[in-house]
Design a protein around this nucleic acid. Structure first.
Lengths: 136, 136
DNA sequence: CATTTCTGTAATGTTTTTTATTACAGTACA
DNA sequence: TGTACTGTAATAAAAAACATTACAGAAATG
C-alpha cells in the first residue's frame, strides 16, 4: 500500500520552488527524478486538483507553483498522495467467530490513525520553502 | 514497501496475550487471522529472535509470550516488522547531475526518519496489555 | 519405537501493486 | 500549420506481497 509517490511529489515541488517564475516541462522534471514523464504528469494532476501547482498547456507550456512555497507544508502533500492509511491491514478478513478476529481491524485502524496523525503533525511543521533551503 | 505484517504480528500477540499459559499452534492462529499458517510461523520466527515469544516444537507444541504483556510495547513490534523506513523513496536513482536530484534522497531520508520517529513514539506508549483490554 | 502432531524453513507459484510504456487527443505558440 | 507541450487512457512489464507445497526435525503418546 506504499510506494514512492511522496518522494516524487516532493521532488517535483522542490524543482518548481527552485525555479519559480519558470515553466518546467514534465520531461525536464522526469529526467531529474529519472522516471517516466507520464508518472510526473499524473502526480502533477493530483497537485493541481489540490491547488498546489498550476500548468499551462501547449508549446512552451509546463507547470509552476500556484502558491507561495512557504504556504505549502509537507503534511498537506503527504495527505494528498496517501489519502488512506499507509499502515495497511492484513489483506484478509479475520475470522469473525473469534473474539479477537472480530474486533482487531477496528482497533488497528484506530491505532494507525493515531500513529499517522503524529507523523502528519511532524510533516506539517515543515514548509516547502524551508525544505528547499537544504538544497542551497 | 508496506504490507500487512504489523497487523499480523499484532494479531498474533493479542491472541497469545489473551491465552497466556497456553500453547497456541500456528494453525489455530492462522485461522483467526485467516491467512496461511506458514506466514504465521515466519512472523513468529521474527518475534522469537527478538525475545518476545517462545515456542515449543513437537506434538502439542505451539507458542506463547516470552515476556509480560505490559513489557511489550507496540513501537518495538513495529520496528521489528519494519526495520527500514516505511516511507520508501522512489524506485529510481535521481539524476546526480541535477542539484536537486543529487541531494533529494538524503534529505528525504532525514525527513522520513523524523516523521517515523514521531509515529514510533506514539506506538511506544501503548503496551500489549493495554491494547488487549480493548478486546474485553 | 512407531505414529501423530506440531515447528521451522526452503522453494515455488500466484496474485496484487507499482512502475513503465505506448498512444493519441487537445492546446498554444511561432 | 508544424512543433512542443499537457492530459489521460489503455496496456505491459517488473516487483512485491502473499499463498502453497513439501519435507526435515522435535516431542508427546500409546
Amino acid at each position: 500500500m506504499n510506494n514512492g509517490r511522496f518522494a516524487i511529489a516532493t521532488h517535483i515541488l522542490v524543482l518548481l520552488c527552485k525555479n519559480e517564475r519558470e515553466l518546467l516541462s514534465s520531461d525536464y522534471i522526469a529526467s531529474s527524478i529519472n522516471i517516466n514523464p507520464v508518472l510526473v504528469r499524473k502526480e502533477i494532476s493530483v497537485l493541481k486538483k489540490a491547488g498546489v501547482v498550476s500548468s499551462k498547456e501547449g508549446k512552451n507550456g509546463g507547470c509552476y507553483l500556484a502558491k507561495k512555497a512557504s504556504d505549502i507544508n509537507l503534511g498537506f502533500i503527504f495527505k494528498l498522495v496517501f489519502p488512506k492509511s499507509i499502515l495497511s491491514l492484513a489483506k484478509n478478513t479475520p475470522n469473525p467467530k473469534c473474539p479477537v478476529g472480530k474486533k482487531i481491524n477496528g482497533h488497528l485502524e484506530n491505532l494507525y490513525s493515531e500513529a499517522e496523525q503524529a507523523m502528519l503533525q511532524k510533516l506539517s511543521n515543515i514548509n516547502l520553502k524551508d525544505f528547499c533551503k537544504k538544497f542551497d
